[in-house]
Amino acid sequence: MSGNRKDALRLLAQFSTIGMSVAFSIFIGVGVGYYLDHKVFAGKTSPWLTLIFLGFGVGAAFKNLYDVASRKDL
């Protein structure tokens, strides 16, 4: 395999993860927040921890995007 095609395969694998990691980051954030709200604190803090961890999840999603966008080797 030539170097060009190997590079293309590597980049394809990396970029194909972006969409999924954005979606899953947000879902994990909401899931952790919901668990803390309803199971750990028994609904006393609802809905604030869900919203805060939703923010963290969105932050993680954008950090993934930023990491890929700011790569030096492209």
């Binding site: 999924m20 990691s21 899953f24 980051s25 879902f27 994990i28 952790v32 993680a60 950090k63 993934n64």
Partner: peptide, 11 residues
């Protein structure tokens, strides 16, 4: 944020 992005890798 970093913890969440590491767990997103599993999924």
């Amino acid at each position: 944020i970093e913890l969440i992005s590491h767990f997103a890798r599993i999924l």
